[in-house]
């Protein structure tokens, strides 16, 4: 009985049923073990390994330079914005910066389908959660860390970015956008 003193000698051999179960559990675990590194070889969607320590000021400066250089302009030479947020077209193969700030994602990146980008994600105030809808891809945006995600969009259209880490009373209003063109 589990609540009374055990037998004098309880270090006894394990019987057949429990042995079978134990071996099955180990096999399941080994499969699960090996799939994690294996997925980095055969999987198409994986974690990024690249991040840098920055100050929030440095990150804001980098992102600001990026925005000014690649912001999309219309024929009159005026900046194109959606709901007041600038649309920026980064060069394929190049770096793109997303700034998380209470309570917006800036700017709106305009990417090209099938091209590869180094997308930087960081926050300049509190911790935020980068969540891309409808793909359901999630990364943390943490102040002081520049998180570099290398991504190649495989489908075109408009995607929403929402914040899924609590960041103050306006947290639920923190929605942004990302555009992928054919």
């Amino acid at each position: 009985m589990s609540i009374y003193a055990p037998d004098k000698v309880w270090w006894k051999p394990i019987d057949r049923e429990e042995k079978i179960w134990f071996v099955l559990a180990i096999i399941w675990m080994l499969v699960s073990f090996f799939f994690m590194p294996l997925w980095h070889v055969i999987g198409k969607q994986n974690q990024s390994d690249e991040s840098y320590r920055v100050t929030t000021d440095q990150y804001a400066e980098l992102a600001g330079k990026f925005r000014d250089k690649y912001v999309v302009k219309d024929e009159k030479g005026e900046e194109v914005t959606i709901n007041g947020v600038a649309v920026v077209h980064p060069p394929p193969g190049g770096d793109a910066y997303i700034v998380a700030r209470m309570w917006s994602w800036q700017p709106i990146l305009e990417l090209e389908k099938g091209k590869t980008y180094r997308v930087h994600i960081s926050s300049v105030d509190l911790q935020h959660g980068f969540s891309l809808y409808p793909l359901n891809i999630n990364f943390m945006a943490i102040p002081g860390q520049d998180y570099v995600i290398t991504m190649t969009p495989t489908s075109s259209g408009e995607f929403s970015i929402l914040c899924n880490e609590y960041c103050g009373l306006g947290h639920h209003t923190m929605v942004g956008k990302m555009i992928v063109k054919d």
Partner: peptide, 19 residues
């Protein structure tokens, strides 16, 4: 992709980017 800790997933508190 419905987030945890979120007050309003219907209109996002009136955000213009609501989806």
């Amino acid at each position: 992709g419905v987030p945890r800790r979120h007050w309003d997933i219907v209109s996002f508190g009136g955000s213009p980017f609501a989806f």
